[in-house]
Design a binder for these strands. Structure first.
Ligand SMILES: [Mn+2]
Ligand SMILES: [Mn+2]
Ligand SMILES: [Zn+2]
Ligand SMILES: [Zn+2]
Lengths: 143, 143
DNA sequence: GTTGTAATTGGAATTATTCTAAATTGAGAA
DNA sequence: TTCTCAATTTAGAATAATTCCAATTACAAC
């Protein structure tokens, strides 16, 4: 993520916050930036550690608040796998996740519209899906 | 679930327990029976309430223990959605889930082998999936 | 500068689940 | 039949992620 892209996404954040009557704060900006810098689906604890390099006195409660705000603004997705701590992902395109059991790493699997339509065909009539959640787990070699 | 089917599945439970050197207890049998009687994906709390009709003095810890044992024996699947309490499902065939946002009800969507193969085609080379988790949410009319 | 509201903060509370240590159970040995 | 003893159950404490709360801080508008 280079500075230019990051900058324009920060502008998007400020716009969304404005739309909702929320204030653009350095905490919110920094949390968002951390998610954009390294898209490895960090947990709140991991976000805290990274943000503190810029804002040493930020609290965990604020990190949770900021993450919730970013999710409410539809800038970040909350990713839950089994019962492990929530992770956060700034990839807004429809995608599935793959978790490598060996390394614990989580990969985005971007889905084409064609594939999403296939998924929706799994639904019998009478079922209208607004969201879906698709997670694979296994072993990833290379990448 | 009629008595005959339930009986044969109980035999399956006893066999699996035996295979693992575990004891068939009335608590395990009753927890399993509760899951077979009403396949509505109850939480541990809900299982506790139902089991207590037969075994009034069973504890929540035991319900958790029994559920874990059943999962370890591959007789029950643990179903996690977002960050809500785990639910338990005795449907062993590969299936997805649909959660109705209105009612909170959870439906099994059984998948044909053909559909599962489609899912696996979502994976780029280098990714080998052992498991997948597919959950839809939206509104279900009828059913 | 004062005011007013939103945001941040540290710590307490909540909640699902797991852990611990003591009591109970029950299948097999004596 | 009684004894033995490991597995199981149990109540309650502990844990861990997250949310809540009340007090402080920040800062834009007046
Ligand atoms: Mn976390
Ligand atoms: Mn529960
Ligand atoms: Zn992602
Ligand atoms: Zn199910």
């Amino acid at each position: 993520m280079n500075a230019k892209v990051s900058k324009s996404l920060q502008n998007r954040l400020n716009q969304k916050l404005l739309d909702k009557g929320l204030r653009p704060t350095k905490q919110r900006s920094c949390v968002y930036d951390v998610l954009l810098q390294k898209k490895d689906h960090p947990t709140a604890d991991e976000v805290l550690i990274r943000v503190r390099k810029k804002l040493p006195s930020i609290s965990l409660a604020t990190v949770y608040n900021c993450l919730e705000t970013l999710v409410d603004c539809s800038l970040v997705k909350q990713v839950n796998m089994d019962r492990s701590p929530s992770r956060y992902c700034p990839n807004l395109t429809p995608h599935a996740h793959f978790r490598c059991s060996q390394s614990g790493r989580i990969y985005d699997l971007n889905l084409r519209e064609e594939e999403i339509n296939l998924l929706k065909e799994f639904l019998p009539s009478g079922f209208n899906a607004e969201h879906f959640d698709l997670t694979f787990s296994g072993s990833a070699t290379l990448s």
